[in-house]
Design a binder for these strands. Structure first.
Length: 530
RNA sequence: GGCGACGUGGCCAAGUGGCUAAGGCGAUGGAUUGCAAAUCCAUUAUUCGUCGGUUCGAAUCCGACCGUCGCCUCCA
């Protein structure tokens, strides 16, 4: 049975479908045409973190891809409301609170700040609502009451459980049958009617954070906060629900059960699950070794294995590099994390940065200041018979087609490289350099090319601002710039006198210090080697 | 044990029935350069884990096998 058919939104008016966007729906295991419930509005929910510890890079996969999805959907003419929850009450938080001898709420505040700072660094800026579980106790309690009154839940000594067998569709999302699930039932096994039943409300033990409820003092179970808060903000049925593959069961299965039983309506139209990140093996890149000696237990990255330190990773690699690294892989596949992979992403990114410098030198305009068109239509370009622009338009179309097909960011990025080559080739062929007449036709064409690249990279949330040398203060950066200017001028003078030995020494010594010089027709610039 | 994903060049990674198998990193040759770097051009998988099968035709569908990984307990 298709969940899509179960939703009635009244007469569908002839809405202009902005684009043929297809989404892989984990519920149906097929790619489906995106048809929002209430176009042009789209409601989107992503399961956020339980804030008991620092986030690690794996936590960023979902936010980065969904941030990109929202940017792309907005670009395609939709108005997206994106919600990411913060779960700030839970067993792990309580345990952490005991361990550190500080209130649970303080840990939650600290770790939420850490999470948000990381999101900011990775350019995740599109979230509209960040609801916290503890701010929604009345809604959560009402939700549970409603389930209880409809016969889907039962109370035992202050605990309330969802009775899984009452939901005829239970197991549909994660594709498992009740019979196949024969767990132990966890610590509350003795109280539950069936092992698969799960807690909606947990009675408080001594010293635990607790809220008043019809069942006595206690706290919400896992799952229920997402049902209550998504309902509060996005309604009974909304368009897209996302999260990591590992949340499919039990979290999403239970969420779905709670919400659809409570409202007697499908909870979500499109379920999306991103792949998980794995830790790569050790550094060695061997030759052709026939035997796969995977002595290094490479597995899913998780907090329980001590993963963390994302802010340190950002400091070393920059948020943009990490975002780019994540976006180069299709969101449903496993991403293997490795330092080498991140380094390579940095190398690839440098090609973009060099083009932006070239662009600025020739046009006199900063790439980063170019306006990014807000819609596909506004961003379209009329090539007017120009072969270079014709090529660019074709590549832009390819980019958009890739994104239309279940947000294939990896394929989309490949067209960006093609676009870069097109632009660089054009510059070379035209012999463009600093000082070119601003109103000349080639410069205008280059500006148009730059505009297309600006447009598309903005959809991916890249190049929002010039790359900074992380850790440098403003004053240090200025000093570095002045010293580099001096060295470059000295070398220039030496070379003018054909004193190549001195010139090369300056270049070599800078190279040893991790700085590369780039000689161009119109002068020399420098960059840090990654 | 149950359910599921994946296995594409040296590495990363698109492509899920049919033009010459994207793109990145790396490598090699060339243009350019005083020499480099950057940029551009060219080359770098007759082949897509293995073996069968379906088909006029498969990396793409089916089966078996090998291998890697995930979920089934907290996890983005």
């Amino acid at each position: 049975m298709s969940p899509a058919t179960a939703t009635q939104t009244g007469p569908t008016q002839p809405l202009q479908q902005p684009a043929e966007i297809r989404i892989y729906n984990t519920l149906t295991k097929t790619k489906e045409q995106l048809e929002p419930l209430r176009p042009p509005q789209i409601g989107m929910y992503l399961c956020g973190p339980t804030v008991y510890a620092e986030s690690h890079i794996g936590h960023m996969v979902g936010p980065v891809i969904f941030d990109t999805i929202k940017r792309f959907l907005s670009y395609s003419g939709y108005q997206v409301t994106w919600v990411v929850n913060i779960t700030d009450v839970d067993d792990k938080l309580i345990a952490k609170s005991r361990e550190r001898q500080i209130p649970m709420s303080q840990i939650a505040v600290e770790m939420t700040a850490d999470y948000l700072a990381n999101l900011r660094e990775l350019g995740v800026t599109q979230i509209d609502h960040l609801p916290r579980a503890t701010d929604h106790m009345p809604q959560i309690i009402r939700f549970i009451e409603s389930l209880e009154s409809k016969g889907f839940a039962y109370e035992v000594d202050g605990d309330v459980f969802f009775e899984v067998s009452k939901d005829p569709h239970y197991g549909q999302l994660s594709n498992r049958t009740l019979e196949a699930m024969q767990g132990e039932g966890g610590e509350a096994a003795g109280k539950k009617r069936a092992a698969g039943d799960f807690a909606l409300w947990k009675s408080a033990r001594h010293g635990e954070p607790a809220w008043d409820s019809p069942w006595g003092k206690g706290r919400p179970g896992w799952h229920i906060e997402c049902s209550a808060m998504s309902h509060e903000i996005l309604g009974e049925t909304f368009d897209i629900h996302g999260g990591g593959l590992d949340l499919m069961f039990p979290h999403h299965e239970n969420e779905r059960a709670q919400s659809s039983c409570c409202h007697d309506a499908p909870m979500v139209k499109y379920w999306m699950h991103n792949g998980l990140m794995r830790a790569g093996e050790k550094g060695k890149v061997g030759g052709k070794s026939d035997r796969q000696t995977s002595d290094d237990a490479a597995g899913k990255i998780s907090r329980s294995k001590g993963a963390g330190g994302l802010s340190d990773l950002i400091r070393r690699h920059t948020g943009e590099r990490i975002r780019f690294f994540l976006l180069r892989t299709q969101y449903r596949s496993t991403i293997v994390y490795s330092e080498e992979g991140l380094d390579e992403a940095g190398t690839a990114l440098a090609t973009f940065y060099r083009f932006f410098e070239r662009f600025a030198e020739i046009t006199g305009e900063s790439f980063y200041d170019l306006p990014a068109p807000r819609t596909r239509d506004a961003g379209s370009v009329d090539p007017g018979g120009d072969p270079t622009l014709t090529e660019a338009v074709a590549l832009r179309d390819k980019f958009l087609a890739a994104m239309d097909d279940d947000f294939n960011t990896g394929l989309a990025i490949s067209t960006l490289f093609d676009l870069l080559r097109t632009a660089n080739r054009f510059i070379d062929q035209q012999g463009l350099a600093a000082g070119a007449a601003a109103d000349s036709a080639p410069v205008q064409t280059l500006k148009t090319l730059g505009g297309v690249i600006r447009d598309l990279t903005a959809v991916l949330g890249l190049f929002r601002k010039p790359p900074l040398d992380s850790g440098d203060s403003q004053a240090d950066a200025e000093l570095t710039e002045a010293l580099m200017r001096l060295l470059i001028d000295l070398r220039k003078e030496a070379r003018a006198k054909k004193d190549f030995a001195t010139g090369d020494m300056i270049r070599d010594r800078l190279g040893e210090a991790g700085i590369a010089l780039l000689d161009k027709k119109d002068g020399t610039s420098w960059e840090r080697k990654s």
